[in-house]
Design a binder for these strands. Structure first.
Lengths: 204, 204
DNA sequence: ACGGATCCATCATTGGATCCAG
DNA sequence: CTGGATCCAATGATGGATCCGT
């Protein structure tokens, strides 16, 4: 209900109501729309690993929508956890837990930040087909990670779920399992949903 | 040499030279003298676990000196590391490493913060006797910690080295080994040198 | 007097994502 | 187009210690 009430409002209106200054340059505003919506909807906030609406177990995701009506960007899901990934199974995986129940809020990614309008939110849980698609990609990727092939993984892999860097820059380093039980220092990575997947959700 | 050059200067002079505003209330300035000296001496700074002067392996400690010429406070050494303490031995312990080579800088703890004067620095390494004293206390305390008796330890223990809380407040919690291989959540603690010990160093 | 409680600055980490060169 | 690179806010952890009631 709170999300529906925000439909049609601009980010500038939200920022004003919350007393937040919007950055001038777009590239300095990467996470801002998501944080405005967290606050406007009374999400628990902060950097804790719990869902945004902890008591409800619901995750909030904002999606930038281009002029054609389709998502302009992929959606970050969670980190690739180096130590856990080898022993993780899909049912208890971080990816599955994170995507178990999501409130998707589209935001028009057109024009100045302050003029961008919030669209109709959609509360979603994966259908059997959607979960099957995610699981297939996840199992392929987790298998590679578990065998120490992290350096072989590019963002090309996965039909709907992919792995890409998640770091302040390309020089950052984290430990990941390497070949034959060794470890390698490489750029930290995260799971992302391709925009083809979010398009399917938001379009249906 | 840089430390000697600072002898006789006030903290106000240092703050001015470094462009730092000193807090009005003393209780809001707890770590400030130490941080001013780090900067003035070109210490590596920050919160890394390395020595202040990394290349030299030297730790910087400021000591507040009362009107009678003796240290007014104990000196914090390092955290009590819950997981390591059970397997640690004195020669490789964090306490010993931290105190292996210290530059002690006395600061008169009299009057307003800005008027307090820096004294004559002393570059120190523990003598055999001093190390023996520290080791005896450390082994007693480490033994208690290893046996899970953390809750039994008060600051009364140890002639020269003691264990006290090290936290933002008394509600903070960290894990420590408890009795019989269990763990307990208790306030995080640190090792401190009693002022009787630093008095011995600075007086000699 | 001093043991337990507390305070600040800075860096590291996490969660929010979008940018942009080829 | 899009894979790899990057940017911000807010917490959490670490290192600097001193405060202050009993």
């Amino acid at each position: 209900m709170r999300a529906e009430a925000l439909s049609g409002r601009t980010l500038g209106e939200l920022a004003l109501a919350l007393g937040v200054r919007l950055p001038e340059e777009p590239r300095r505003a990467k996470g801002i729309p998501g944080q405005l919506l967290e606050r406007a909807l009374g999400a628990d906030g902060g950097s804790r690993p719990e869902p945004d609406f902890g008591a409800l177990g619901i995750e909030l995701k904002t999606v930038p929508i281009g002029p054609e009506g389709r998502p302009r960007e992929s959606t970050y899901v969670c980190k690739v956890a180096s130590l856990e990934i080898a022993h993780e199974e899909w049912p208890s995986s971080r990816v599955r837990r994170k995507l178990a129940h999501v409130l998707w809020v589209p935001v028009a990614a057109v024009g100045a930040l302050a003029e961008r309008r919030i669209g109709a939110a959609r509360l979603w849980q994966p259908s059997s087909e959607e979960e099957g698609d995610l699981r297939a990609d996840w199992e392929e990727l987790a298998g590679l990670l578990g065998s120490g092939a992290v350096e072989e993984i590019t963002a090309h892999r996965g039909r709907f779920l992919q792995i890409r860097p998640k770091a302040a820059d390309g020089d950052e380093r984290g430990v990941m399992p390497g070949p034959d039980g060794t470890t390698v220092a490489t750029v930290p990575r995260g799971f992302y949903l391709r925009s083809s997947f979010t398009e399917r959700i938001l379009g249906s």
